[in-house]
Design a protein around this nucleic acid. Structure first.
Lengths: 235, 235
DNA sequence: AAAGCAGCTTTTGTCGATAAAAATTCTGTT
DNA sequence: AACAGAATTTTTATCGACAAAAGCTGCTTT
């Protein structure tokens, strides 16, 4: 989704889609909120027509719902929904990883190594500002997971996983803005998980890599909602 | 996607999305065609603003591309693309089927049986008019596959598979409008495949059912492009 | 006090006109 | 004849005004 990459050539509608998307992912617009067009026009300076068009593009990404004659609203989050994201990611990302391991060349390997390095670095040196931490982490974390599956050869799998990743970002952000972000990121086993995953991929151990991925995905939900009773109630 | 189900309460934009979607799926708008707004306004009687909004909603469904300042065009089809659809469907639909078999109750079983019955019936008694055959087949075929996975419990898997199914429909339609549709539908092994798939699901044989599904998905691409050199060139 | 209804306000959704960009045609030069 | 560049046409994208629907408010009735 390339957050914040607005070129001058982009149309207003495309800019609107990115802006509203960013507002939702970052939590500025909260779960269930109505998208008041007039307010958004004021806030963004974009006209109502391109705004509506941009928002319409987010519907199929699962960030927004449209109710006839009742406008748009931000798709609601819930623990069950987060589980659903991970359940859907699992078979898709497993297969993409398998294909990637099978087909990836040495350029792919180098890509995995370098993105893993950046991720580990970030987790060790994360900034204390939650907002900065969330967006920074998102960039390097998504970079690593995308690198892992980048050699799978299926445009659609990559596209779907991109959607699922962005949907998950709403929850990651929720987690990182509650309490000290470094507490979440520096949990030793979380860093270790990523290292293992990357190494198993490069050593072409598909089954073990997929197992590591499964564990990684299925424990994330706990991480978000575990000791965060507040987070749950603020949905 | 509920083709042709336009309620009076729907907004113009929603109607536009369905109309344009139907035009693409049916082949009325062909692969790579530009979507000329003015022409569409004339054809459909819908205003330009809601038309654009409706078309925007199809972007993430993979039916349409938007190029900045160069309008919309119909996503291109190709043999490689059809393979990609099936490759993405495979892991998702396999997992959904597995979950469904695990969790489905007797209502689910009855649903599978009844949709299978309708599908087999249709294949044996298919109309000779290609257009009628394509849309009719789509309805019962999608009904059966959706029934199979309906108990999986994951909204997202169902939504993604719905998208993939619709994307595939463009190719099924291509196939059925070349030559006698009944030739394609009455191939004995094609009917048998569906029967087996349904039966294995109901008898709760997840592994065998998934194998049958894999075979079903992977041979479809051949069916479309096999002896249809014309079809290929008309993309 | 609760329910129902009329009138008002707010908000959404749509239209027609216009600005902006791209595509096309035309023209003059080498 | 081929090409570059200007002028024209076409098409896309956007704005501002308006119609239509939904949501509110407060009054009346029981």
């Amino acid at each position: 989704m390339d957050l914040g990459a607005e070129r001058a050539s982009d149309t207003q509608a495309a800019i609107a889609a990115e802006r509203v998307s960013a507002m939702i992912l970052s939590g500025e617009l909260r779960s269930g909120d109505r998208l008041n067009i007039r307010d958004l026009v004021k806030q963004t300076g974009i006209g109502a027509t391109p705004l509506r068009e941009g928002i319409s593009r987010l519907i199929a990404r699962g960030l927004v719902n449209a109710l006839d004659h009742r406008g748009f609203r931000v798709t609601e989050t819930s623990p069950a929904d987060l589980e659903d994201i991970m359940r859907a990611r699992l078979p898709l990302e497993s297969e993409a990883l398998r294909l990637s391991i099978e087909r990836g060349d040495d350029v792919w390997e180098a890509h995995v190594v370098s993105t893993l390095h950046r991720l580990v670095n970030f987790m060790n040196w994360a900034p204390q500002d939650p907002r900065e931490a969330a967006f920074g982490f998102d960039a390097v974390h998504k970079g690593f997971h995308t690198a892992l599956i980048s050699a799978c050869g299926s445009q659609r799998m990559l596209a779907f996983l991109d959607v699922l990743y962005d949907q998950g970002f709403r929850y990651r952000h929720l987690m990182l803005t509650h309490g000290d972000p470094r507490r979440h990121l520096q949990g030793a086993q979380r860093i270790e998980e990523h290292k293992q995953l990357g190494e198993l991929a490069i050593r072409r151990k598909p089954k073990q890599a997929i197992d590591a991925l499964r564990h990684h995905l299925l424990t994330f939900s706990d991480d978000v909602f575990k000791d965060n009773a507040e987070a749950r109630s603020q949905d």
